[in-house]
Amino acid sequence: MTSHGGLVRVGLAAMLGLLRGVVVAVAMLAAICSPAVLLAQPAVSAADLLPDVPAVRFEGPEPLEIATRTGVLSFDVEVAVDDEQRARGLMYRRSLPSGRGMLFDFGVERDVTMWMQNTYISLDMLFIRRNGEILSIAERTTPRSTAHIPSGGPVRFVLELPAGSAKQLGITVGDQVGHRLIGGR
């Protein structure tokens, strides 16, 4: 009788596991079919991520401009505004096309330190004050490095662009960044 009771418990546990799987599958299907989710598809395709890495949804892409000494540059950026998004950033991406980037909003101006752990592409990092002024630039960061990359003073935003963008496009400290989150826009 004891073994029969054990079989009942094992069978019940298996059925509960199956039921949980069905509930998760239905929830995922509902999310995929939801119009709100369809409008907020990620700017990165699953093919751009390394295998077996779950996607994190970001806002955007949306327009961002940088006013340089030689003119205004336009970019399409994804926006990381919450802890999960800021923690993931561009980690696990295989590429970042020219003219694209990611804007991190830390909500308040403070010293910020970034790193490249699990980031497989080299980046330029622009550290931006709340008024949109570029405070400092870290060029051609080292992929997968755990070295700390400090902002050099209080900033609210960090803009990550493909490595070499700052030099190639003439982006320098003091240039002005414009975006709906920056400088009251």
Rank of each mutant, 00 (worst) to 15 (best):
R100T: 03
Y120D: 12
D48I: 03
D83T: 08
A31H: 10
A13Q: 11
S74Y: 04
F58C: 12
R130C: 06
Q41E: 12
V10E: 10
V158C: 10
A47T: 12
V56E: 14
L73T: 14
L39T: 14
S122G: 15
E59L: 11
V177R: 04
D105N: 13
Q176F: 00
V81Q: 14
Y120C: 12
S122Q: 07
L126N: 01
R144V: 09
R129A: 13
D175T: 05
A55R: 06
T141W: 04
I121H: 05
P35M: 15
R20V: 05
V53N: 11
L18C: 00
A40I: 03
T2K: 15
T2R: 15
V10G: 05
T70A: 14
F127W: 05
V155R: 08
P63L: 12
W115H: 13
G184K: 08
L50C: 06
S122P: 12
I128L: 09
L123K: 04
M114G: 09
P143H: 11
A25V: 04
T70W: 01
M102V: 02
F157P: 01
G101V: 05
T142E: 14
V8T: 11
R69N: 09
I171T: 06
Q117T: 04
L103T: 01
L103F: 00
L29I: 13
I149V: 13
Q85V: 02
M15N: 03
V22D: 15
D124V: 03
A67L: 09
V173F: 11
V22C: 15
A25W: 06
D48K: 02
E109Q: 11
L135T: 06
L135Y: 00
P54W: 10
M1P: 13
A13F: 05
V10T: 07
P54C: 14
L19N: 05
P51F: 13
R88G: 00
A30E: 14
A138M: 08
G107V: 06
P150V: 10
R69C: 05
S165L: 01
G21V: 03
L181D: 04
Q85I: 03
V177N: 07
V77C: 15
Q85L: 08
G132M: 01
T68V: 07
I171V: 13
T119Q: 04
P97V: 02
L18M: 01
V155Q: 10
V79Q: 15
E133S: 13
Q176H: 05
L73G: 09
R130Q: 10
G178K: 08
V24C: 05
I149D: 04
E78H: 02
L50T: 05
P154G: 14
F104E: 15
L159Y: 01
T2N: 15
S122C: 09
S45H: 06
R144K: 11
H179D: 10
A27W: 06
A27C: 12
